Measured scan of single mutants.
Amino acid sequence: MDETGKELVLALYDYQEKSPREVTMKKGDILTLLNSTNKDWWKVEVKITVNGKTYERQGAVPAAYVKKL
C-alpha cells in the first residue's frame, strides 16, 4: 500500500497499450491498483513524468502482467 492506503501492484512485464482504455507500463513499474474485480484486466493508475511534470493516467492492464505488493 502507498501512503494514502491504496493498494500497489508491480509490473512483471512490459505492456504497450492497444486502445485508449489501456495504459502502457514497463517491467518494474509500481502502479496504483484502482479495481481488480475483473479477473483478466485490472484498472490501474500510472504516474508519467514528462519534462519534469508528473501526470496521472488511469487505464486497464492485463492482470497476469502485474502482481499485488
Rank of each mutant, 00 (worst) to 15 (best):
S36E: 15
L8Y: 15
V50H: 09
M1N: 13
Q16P: 05
W42S: 00
E17P: 14
D14F: 04
V61D: 02
G52K: 04
K39G: 10
S36M: 10
E17I: 06
K26T: 07
K26F: 09
K18I: 06
W41G: 01
E3Y: 14
S19V: 03
V23H: 02
K18A: 10
K53Y: 11
P20A: 11
N51D: 13
K26A: 07
T4F: 12
D2K: 14
A64G: 11
W41A: 00
D2M: 14
W42Q: 00
V61H: 01
A64Q: 11
T24M: 03
Q16G: 06
K6E: 09
E17Q: 12
R21F: 14
T54H: 08
K53V: 14
E45T: 09
E45C: 14
K67L: 10
G59A: 04
G5I: 11
M25S: 00
V50N: 07
V61A: 02
N35Y: 04
T4V: 12
Y65E: 04
M25R: 02
E45H: 06
W42L: 05
L8R: 11
K27I: 05
E3I: 13
E56F: 15
K53A: 10
G5D: 11
K47S: 12
T32S: 07
N51L: 08
K43M: 15
I48L: 09
K67F: 07
D40P: 00
G28F: 03
D2A: 13
K47H: 11
D14P: 03
S19P: 03
K68D: 04
E3C: 15
I30G: 00
K27S: 06
M25G: 00
G5P: 14
V46C: 09
E3F: 12
P62L: 07
V9G: 10
L8V: 08
T54N: 08
T37W: 07
E22P: 04
K27D: 01
I48V: 13
E22S: 05
Y13A: 11
L31D: 00
V66I: 07
K68M: 10
L8H: 09
W41F: 06
I30C: 08
V46S: 06
T37C: 15
Y13L: 10
E56I: 15
V9I: 07
D40I: 14
S19M: 05
T49E: 11
R21G: 15
L69K: 04
K43H: 15
D14T: 05
T32A: 08
E17Y: 03
T54G: 06
V61E: 00
T54E: 10
G52N: 07
V46G: 04
D14H: 04
K18G: 07
K68Y: 09
V61F: 01
